[in-house]
Design a protein around this nucleic acid. Structure first.
Lengths: 121, 121
DNA sequence: TCCTTGTTCAACCAATGGGTTGACAACGCC
DNA sequence: GGCGTTGTCAACCCATTGGTTGAACAAGGA
C-alpha cells in the first residue's frame, strides 16, 4: 500500500480523521486544538495527523512551539478523478445494458409464442 | 469502523480491490474470472470480494455454481458527496482568505501613510 | 536560566488485515 | 450416484494499525 491514492483512501477510512479533515476545511488548527473534541490522548491525535500528512492531505508549519495543521484540498482531486472515471464507465455500461434490454423486449414481442425465461431479476 | 462510508474508503484503499472495481465497471465477472490476473490465491480474492460486498460496492447473485459479481456504482455517491462537500468548503475558505490577503495588500499600499485597519466587513 | 506550553518519540499491547493452506459445500454433467 | 468445477469457511501467520503511558524535545516567557 505505497501509492498515494491508497494512502488517501486509507486515511479517510477513519471517522476521527474524516472529522479532523472536516474541521480543517473551516480553519487551520493546532494539534491541541484539533484533539480537544476527541476522547483519546494527544499522542493518538498526533498519530492520526501523521497519517493524514503522509497521505498528503495536510501540511504542518512551525509557528513558535505550535505546529498549525493546514488542509491541502487538492489531494481530493486524486480521489474524485479515480471515482468519476469508473463511475462514468459504469454508467455507460448501464446505458448499453438498457439498450440491450430494450432490444430484447423488442424480440420478446408478445405476438411471439416463445417463453421469456432467463430474464427474471 | 462500522459506518458504511468508512467501509467504502477502506475497501478502496487496496490497489487490488480498486483494480477489481475498475474491471467490474466493464462487465460482471465470476470470482475465478476476477482472480485470474492476480498472483494470489482464489481464497484471498474471495476475501477481497467480501470486503467490497460489505462496503456495498458489489453484489453477488447465484447462477448455478457460479457467483457472478456485480458492481453497485451508486455507493460512489456516498464518497463523492462527502468529498465534494468539504472540498467546496475548503475552496470557499480559500476565497475568503484571498479576499483577506487582497485587503491586506490594500492596507499595505505604500501611498497611504495611515494603516486602514478595522475596515474589514 | 529555569519553567511552561505544545508536540513528538519510544515501547508496548490488542485488534485487524491480507495472505496462506486444507477441508468442504453446492451445483451441473455424465 | 460419482466427478469435476466453483467458491467459501476455518485456522493459522505475520505485519500494520490505533490506542495506551512515560519520557523527551523545542521554543518562548518569567
Amino acid at each position: 500500500m505505497t501509492d498515494q491514492l491508497s494512502r488517501v483512501f486509507a486515511a479517510l477510512a477513519d471517522p476521527t480523521r474524516r472529522d479532523m479533515v472536516a474541521r480543517l476545511t473551516e480553519a487551520d488548527h493546532t494539534v491541541n486544538d484539533l484533539a480537544a473534541p476527541y476522547d483519546v490522548s494527544l499522542q493518538a491525535v498526533s498519530k492520526h495527523l501523521k497519517v493524514l500528512e503522509e497521505a498528503g492531505l495536510v501540511t504542518r508549519t512551525r509557528e513558535a512551539q505550535r505546529r498549525p495543521v493546514h488542509l491541502e484540498a487538492e489531494v481530493f482531486d486524486l480521489m474524485t478523478k479515480w471515482i468519476e472515471r469508473y463511475r462514468r464507465q459504469a454508467e455507460e455500461r448501464y446505458s448499453r445494458l438498457d439498450a440491450v434490454l430494450a432490444r430484447m423486449q423488442d424480440a420478446d414481442d408478445p405476438s411471439s409464442t416463445n417463453p421469456q425465461e432467463g430474464t427474471a431479476s
